[in-house]
């Protein structure tokens, strides 16, 4: 199995406080990797390291190396803007822009100047909507505001928005935590389909979700990566006592 991304000795500090301590993690291509652990364990912080979103938080320092294919994205000559264009991200709360559905999805292609022609832009938007299975739902109201959609639809618009610039990796930060069970199921089904083309890293609070959709899981505890392996194994025969405690619900 080929690795899409590799993290080596990643440490994160917020001011004087250490948030992540020496993380080493491989992210295999075209699979879903779930990051699990209690709140505040550092899993979201690690996710934000993967596309250099932590650069935007003042007082946050990241050290170590993270490779995308064979390139260290923390190397000095790397442009974080390009990293973020290559690695898409979907957030906890659906956050569509207060614009039309079309403009939301066209945002990435437009700012990144992917195409000059309106027809091609329309193709890209339609393709992204089809990938998230929303084309039929919204094809008559592409010019209506995206903020008027339901929470689940908004989140799928956000995924389509990320897909529109054809990222290589998709990072998802608890994408279903603000959604109802039906909308959650639809997103989970969508992720399974997408995983054949994209490398997906998902932070999740729900162990059931991790068990349902991911091939591999990584357990974080107090800023450390405790254990990583095939999801089946993590959930049935974990090596570490702390992982077992978490899985069996003794804490977290």
């Amino acid at each position: 199995m080929q690795n899409k991304m590799t993290a080596r000795n990643v440490e994160v500090h917020y001011g004087d406080k250490m948030a992540l301590d020496g993380i080493n993690l491989d992210i295999p291509q075209h699979q879903i990797l779930a990051l699990i652990g209690a709140s505040g364990c550092g899993k979201s912080t690690f996710l934000r390291c993967l596309n250099r979103m932590n650069d935007e938080i003042s007082g946050c320092r990241v050290s170590g190396e993270i490779f995308l294919d064979d390139e260290n994205i923390y190397a000095p000559k790397i442009d974080p803007v390009l990293v973020r264009a290559r690695i898409g991200m979907v957030f906890q709360k659906p956050n569509p822009f207060p614009k039309s559905i079309f403009d939301n999805i066209a945002f990435g292609p437009r700012i990144n100047r992917i195409t000059e022609s309106e027809a091609e832009l329309r193709d890209i938007v339609h393709y992204a909507l089809e990938r998230v299975g929303m084309m039929d739902e919204v094809k008559d109201r592409l010019q209506e505001s995206a903020t008027g959609l339901s929470g689940g639809q908004q989140q799928r618009i956000c995924i389509a928005r990320a897909l529109a610039i054809a990222p290589e990796v998709l990072l998802m930060d608890e994408p279903c935590s603000a959604l109802d069970p039906i909308a959650t199921t639809r997103i989970e089904e969508l992720l399974e389909v997408l995983s054949s083309d994209y490398t997906i890293v998902i932070v999740t609070h729900s162990m059931h979700q991790a068990a349902r959709i991911s091939q591999r899981s990584a357990f974080f505890h107090l800023g450390e990566l405790i254990e990583v392996g095939a999801t089946d194994k993590i959930f049935t025969k974990p090596d570490d006592q702390r992982t077992e405690n978490y899985i069996t619900g003794r804490f977290g």
Binding site: D79, V81, L82, A85, N112, I165, E168
Partner: peptide
Amino acid sequence: MRQHYTAIIAKSLQARHR
């Protein structure tokens, strides 16, 4: 699956950073 846009985006970046 479509092709990635990395090369196109990278080309646009200089002007955008300016």
